[in-house]
């Protein structure tokens, strides 16, 4: 191919490519300007620390000072060879299988039901659904512990009817994926319903009116018009729920803390195991190695979704 090119042709292509880049830079100057602050913050608080974590995973510590690359793959071998390794990732898998489809399905259902008849009633319900979103972290675990104690729970009569008379009958290793799903849905669903609602507001009225003229009823409008419109938001939610749930930490950590003494293993989720490596044992390398595997799982999930749905082809690129 190159043999047919005249000697003069090469510099010319290079020059034109350079000038194209130059024009490109000038043409896209504003684009980069708008993205610049974000890029800077991303470098300092996102990519930079992440690269350092990657470096740590190959390092070992002696007397508190890191020796970079001294560990080779030792940290990975240690973390991935741990007896708890398969246990925590198995737990995580169970939790994801329960929480992701359930969370997204119910949020979409509720958002669509609320949108069927906009008005005071729907707005009030949307607010009610959202208020638990204010309860997160320690406060959430505290509240859920009370709610799951049949002795004092407002749902106590229901629990008693079902045969669960104490806390341990409701919270045990096998029930944890469901317990964390219920916790997460309680505090997170309202926000997602609001986001889906915000998304639906961006829908053009003309399309809905046209559908009404064509004789669509409320269910058909929800199923055939609103649901397809919500797709990018649903994908967004799926990616984020998946990402957040992979990082499950505060809930199991607080359940196992000494003041709750729930009947659950001390390291239930991968993030807890990583945390334990870092702060109980002081092995930051092994913690980083485990965290990178979690990142890998999150990315693989996101990649499949993005490929499958063409999520990056939104808007300008379509």
């Amino acid at each position: 191919m190159a043999t047919s090119a005249t000697p003069a042709a090469l510099p010319l292509t290079r020059r034109s490519r350079l000038s194209r880049l130059g024009i490109g830079w000038r043409r896209h100057r504003i684009s980069y300007l708008l993205a610049l602050p974000y890029i800077i913050f991303m470098a300092i608080f996102g990519i930079g620390p992440a690269l350092y974590a990657l470096l740590m995973s190959f390092s070992k510590w002696s007397m508190g000072t890191p020796q970079y690359f001294a560990a080779g793959l030792d940290n990975y071998k240690l973390a991935y060879g741990d007896a708890r390794f398969f246990q925590v990732f198995g737990n995580l898998l169970e939790f994801l299988i329960v929480s992701v489809p359930l969370g997204i399905g119910l949020v979409v259902l509720l958002a669509l039901l609320l949108d069927m008849r906009p008005g005071r009633f729907s707005s009030a319900l949307r607010l009610l659904y959202f208020i638990p979103g204010a309860v997160t972290g320690p406060a959430l675990v505290l509240l859920v512990i009370c709610i799951l104690d049949p002795g004092i729970s407002p749902f106590g009569p229901i629990f008693n009817f079902l045969g669960a008379t104490n806390f341990d009958a409701l919270v045990f290793p096998g029930s944890l994926p469901f317990v964390f799903t219920i916790m997460g849905f309680f505090s997170g669903a309202g926000m997602w319903i609001a986001i889906q609602h915000g998304g639906l507001q961006g829908m053009s009225r003309e399309v809905l009116e046209a559908a009404e003229l064509d004789g669509c009823n409320a269910w058909q409008k929800a199923l055939y018009i609103k649901l397809p419109f919500m797709r990018p938001y649903i994908v967004y939610q799926t990616i984020l729920i998946f990402a957040l749930n992979v990082q499950l930490f505060v809930e199991p950590q607080l359940l196992t803390s000494t003041w709750v003494q729930a009947n659950v293993p001390p390291q239930w989720a991968p993030n807890q195991l990583a945390y334990s490596y870092a702060f109980d044992v002081g092995n930051f390398g092994a913690a980083a190695a485990l965290s990178l595997l979690m990142l890998g799982i999150g990315l693989a999930g996101a990649y499949v979704l993005i490929r499958w749905t063409g999520f990056f082809k939104l808007g300008g690129q379509s």
């Binding site: 992440a50 974590a53 740590m56 990616i239 990402a243 870092a278 930051f284």
Partner: peptide, 18 residues
């Protein structure tokens, strides 16, 4: 996307050092 998925347990120490 990658920075959204970064586990907190991995980020805390580098951020602290920074």
């Amino acid at each position: 996307l990658i920075t959204m998925l970064l586990p907190v347990s991995a980020m805390v120490l580098p951020l602290f050092l920074e």
